[in-house]
Structures are given as C-alpha cells and as structure tokens.
Design a protein around this nucleic acid. Structure first.
Lengths: 234, 234
DNA sequence: CAAACCAAACTGGTTAACCAATTTAGCGAA
DNA sequence: TTCGCTAAATTGGTTAACCAGTTTGGTTTG
C-alpha cells in the first residue's frame, strides 16, 4: 500500500484543524490570560497529531500574539481576554489567502501613506538610498531593459524612509507577490517604464523638498494605470 | 563551565546572521531565479549552525517570497531577480520591531480604508456579524465593565466586511499588540467607552446604508482621541 | 549509438531521543 | 507547624536518526 504524501495546502489544513482544536480546548477549559496550556507532548497525543505539527500551530498563534511559550516552563494564554481570544481565533481560521486585487489595493493604500510620511521624516541617508534606487531604475530603462526589480526597490526605499517599520514590514510582505503577478500578467510594458522615470523623479523631488501633499499627488499619478487595472480585473 | 542559554532576542540575532550568510552565498555564487541552494545539511555545516536554525531562516525567507523549497528536491531561488533579491534581503535584515506609534499609525490608516470598503461591499452576513459585536460592546459598557475586547472585535468585524483579506490579515497582526499596549498605558477610560457606543453605532449605520464617505468620517471621529495620543507620545 | 532502466546517493520533511532549565513535591530540621 | 533545601518529574527547545520521494550517474539492451 502506498502512503499518501501531504501537499502543502493539505498540510495547512492540518494546521487549521489543530488550531481549531486548541480553540475548543481553550473554550472548554475556560482558559484565561496567564493560564497554562497542557504540555506539547500531551496535546499532540490528545489531538492525535505529531508534536512538530502541534508546535507549528502554537508558533502561528504566537505570531498573532495569542499565546506565549516560555522555555522549560510551558505555553500560556497571552494578555487577551476569552472573548477577544475566541473572536480572533475564529477570524484567523476563516482567513483566506489574499487575491491579487486585495494585494494591489493594499499596496496603493500603504504607498500613498508611506510617501507622505517619507516627505515628513526622510533623513539625508534616506534620500541617498532613494536616489541610488532611482538612478539604477533610470539606467535600466534607458538601456531598454526590464526594470521591474529596480522599480520595486525604489518603492521599498520610500517605505523605509517613512520611518514606520510596521508599514515597511507589510510592504515587504506583499511586494514580491505583486511583482511575480505583474510579470505573469504583463501589467507593465516598456512604454510605461519610460514614463515611470519622470514619475519616480517627481515623487523623489517632492519627498526631497519635504512636501507631503505633492508627494502623495505624484504617487497617485504614478498609480493611475495600476489603479484602473486593479478595478477592472474582476 | 556553565553553558550560556540564548534568550529569544539573541536567537533572533542568530537567525539574522544566518540570513546574511545566505545573502552572501547568493551574492557570491550569483544565484538566479530557479537556481538550487546547497542542501540544508551542507549549509548548516558550512555556516556552523544547527539544521533547525537554518531551516527557520529559510522558512522566514519563504514567508517573504524569496525562496521556495520543494520536498525531497531542494531549496530554490524564487522568481525574483538578483538585484531585487539583494535589496529585499538588506531591507529584511534592517527591519526593526515596530514601536507603538507605528502600530497606531498603521491601524488608523487601515481602518479608515476598511470601513470605506466595508460600506461598499458588506453583505447581509457581514452586517449580522458586526451587529453582534456591536451589541456585545454596548452591553459590557452599559454594565460598567471593561470592553476593550468587544471594542476590538467590532473593529475586526469591519475589517472582515471590507472583503480585503490582505488588510484583514494585517489588522489581525497588529491588533493584539495594540490592545495590550492600550491596557498597559490605560489609553481608554470608562467615560470614553460610553461615548464609544454612539460612535460605533454611527459607523455601523453608515456601513449599513452603504455610505463610504460617511463611514470614513465617523471612523475619523472615533479615532480623534487616539489620533492625538498617537502624535503626542514621542 | 541512443534510449530505457535501475540502483545508489541525495534531499526536505518527519519522528524520536536528548538536554538543560524550571517547577514541584517531599523530606528534614528548626 | 513552618520554612528551607534537595531531588525527581516536567517542560519547551535542540539534536540526531529516520523516511520516502527525487535526482543522477552508470549500465544494459534494443
């Protein structure tokens, strides 16, 4: 008999099942902030899953700030009341992987903000960083080469200059997904790229002269085509 | 001789070192999309770290979409060119954990958008979900009890109704951090909570009548105090 | 000579054994 | 009875062994 191997998506489902079982446990035992969960060994046996799978699920819930595990001590409920815990677990379990439209929508939202913040907070070092990325982009485009990577790096340099590491993180998360989709669907063409140089320059200058309103305006212009695309794909 | 145990932050530093070593390897070997990395065993030996630590680092880079690992085959460079790869690795290594101000700033940005989107896209099911959360909040407040959890769940129900799973995910990530800080610094007091009922109601009604502009306006009102707080803590 | 094939080595994933710090329970002295 | 101390059990984390596909190189066969 051949043993069936689990695909990645199936494995993710397994993790969701474990999380829902943890939720049931928390619910049934009325666990409150600071309370200790049973040990990993015990839970893995009780749930009929491997300890490593269980650990992954716990680490996922740690990522969302719902659990805290202390070495040689145990895993504990974080400082979140039972009601919020239950609601958040429900939301996490119902989360679906973002579609392309959601990603683009979120990117636009984030970038219109990061460029404003960058205009307000950019340091001289940030400016240098952005200028470098800008020049690299222009050079590639003027050479007739594909410059998706350089485009991306310029936008990430703005995110960094925003001084908001939370938005910076989110930009880093969604960006790769977006550029692979861009390349797949050929959203950017070569003619656009030439226009892009001017648009990038405008954004850079606005940030340089610390004019947040203008920076946002120029970013909006830059996103005009993307914006239309985003609202036409469905 | 006593063996020094690694704290969590030190462990994170170890992971960063591994990632920087992976970056050096990619750089030195000029690895391009589709190229295979050396095996985990080989790398862990070469870097002088445990395989599990190395695996964690690889999984982190998988999370950011830079690497892809296939079972029984190997770990590969994702569809991201060398320039973007190098730039993103640099950004990831320089990422710092978000401070409270960044979190609040990001939350405000996200929620002003999610409530607009919710007004445009909410289903009847979403409305029910929101109404439930709203009633639970009101009940708690009218009882003179602390209602931070219910407040949180109402806002998350809006994020869900926005139909943008990317923003929904981000809200889930930053929310727990925020509420623990709120409780720590006592941002919310009881008098505010009573006012909060009316404000929540206004937001809900605006979303119900599918008026995105009004929804955003009411959310802004709701955030007024938070907004001031956010820009006064530094 | 080329294509089909087979076995050995290699790979990421999984499981089980191990470790050191922590907690706990029990014993003993005051 | 109470406080202090020690040793054993428990814990999350780590390391090493194992597994089942995949790849690869050489051999065989038509």
């Amino acid at each position: 008999m051949k043993l069936e191997v689990l695909t990645k998506s199936e494995n993710k489902e397994v993790q969701k099942e474990i999380i829902s079982k943890i939720r049931d446990l928390i619910d049934f035992k009325n666990l409150e902030p600071g309370d200790k969960l049973p040990s990993e060994r015990m839970l893995s046996e009780k749930f009929g899953v491997s300890r490593s799978n269980l650990r992954e699920a716990i680490q996922r819930l740690e990522f969302y700030g719902l659990l805290k595990s202390r070495p040689q001590s145990g895993t504990f409920i974080a400082d979140i009341g039972p009601i919020a815990m239950k609601g958040m677990l429900k939301d996490i379990l119902e989360l679906e992987t973002p579609d392309f439209k959601s990603l683009v929508e979120t990117r636009i939202l984030l970038e219109l903000k990061t460029c404003r913040l960058a205009a307000l907070r950019r340091t001289e070092e940030d400016l240098e960083h952005m200028k470098k990325a800008l020049d690299a982009f222009s050079a590639k485009v003027n050479n007739g080469e594909d410059a998706v990577q350089e485009d991306l790096l310029f936008h990430l340099s703005i995110a960094k200059a925003s001084g908001n590491s939370s938005m910076n993180t989110f930009m880093l998360i969604i960006t790769p997904e977006i550029i692979t989709n861009f390349e797949k669907y050929h959203v950017c063409d070569v003619n656009r790229a030439a226009l892009g140089i001017q648009e990038h320059n405008d954004i850079f200058e606005a940030i340089k002269k610390q004019d947040p309103k203008l920076a946002k305006e120029k970013m909006k212009v830059h996103f005009k085509m993307l914006y239309q695309y985003c609202y036409n794909i469905e």
